[in-house]
Computed example of a mutant assay.
Amino acid sequence: MMSSFFELSGVTKNFGGVQAVSKMTFSMEKGELAGLMGPNGAGKTTVFNLITGVYDPDEGSILFKGENLVPLKTFQVTARGVARTFQNLRLFQRSTVLENVMTAAQHHVPYTFVEGITHLGRWRSKEREIREKSMTLLERVGLADRAGQAAGTLPYGYQRRLEIARALALDPELLLLDEPAAGMNAEEVASLNLLIQDIHRDFALTILVIEHHMDLVMEICPHIICMNFGAKIAEGTPREVQNHPEVLKAYLGEEEDE
């Protein structure tokens, strides 16, 4: 029996006496677009931190293409083909939009340290390739005309797009988007939905989206995992999850009480 492209099995993480993630189990097939949703504080970002080696789980396994990621450091996970964005933007604010993407695109450039310092040998041709690749990615996310602008001066929604372009520059097979719609208005969220769907299709990526707001996840993700207090409470199609009694109680109940 073939294993899934990506799979969490019994993943648990405790911080002191608090169980942030409890026996989290789900899997994704190659090419899926899935959503991980739940109320604020449900443990969603902790799951991403466990996947990417920021935290080590206390129990369980995280398999990507059959390899257990648990023993690996963050840079090793990235090298395996896993890239992420962050809930709190982590751009180089004073660097240009283009420089932010080029920095990520250099992660597996074959020129030597000496060539990089002297700008001799393969450096010139590789630097040209990196620039062209980075500009292509900026064009894909609608930021090519802002390539020379300092990243920190971009409108917030555009900074979110830049972070996605930077993650794509790492050439991932699995892309993790941590609350990409945070702080956006309804129009920006609708535009982001289209961008994520286009990237999913055009780059043939497997994408897992964390989102607190149900609108984005329900619209674009055929496969949804819902969690609360660190544990999975439902999994299935948008309709199945939306009508699940535990989700109504834990998630939709927030809105009903307001």
Rank of each mutant, 00 (worst) to 15 (best):
K249I: 10
A105L: 08
F26H: 04
V209K: 02
E219F: 06
M214C: 03
L138M: 04
L194I: 14
G66I: 14
D171Y: 09
V209W: 09
L69S: 02
L248W: 08
G31A: 01
F203Q: 03
V47H: 02
L138V: 05
M1W: 11
Y251T: 06
I196V: 15
P155K: 03
V241N: 02
A20G: 08
I220P: 00
F5Q: 04
Q93H: 12
H119M: 13
A186V: 15
R239F: 13
E67L: 12
A181H: 05
E59Q: 14
V101L: 05
L177D: 03
R124N: 10
I199A: 01
A151S: 10
V101G: 03
P222N: 07
N40M: 08
G66R: 08
Q242M: 13
F15H: 04
W123V: 00
I224H: 05
F86C: 01
S125F: 10
S61M: 12
I199F: 12
F26Q: 01
V247F: 11
L120N: 12
E127I: 05
S125N: 12
A34K: 06
Q93E: 15
T112M: 10
L143Y: 04
G121Q: 03
G16P: 12
L252H: 09
H200M: 05
F64C: 01
F203P: 01
F203S: 00
G17A: 10
A234H: 05
S9E: 15
Q242E: 13
R201H: 13
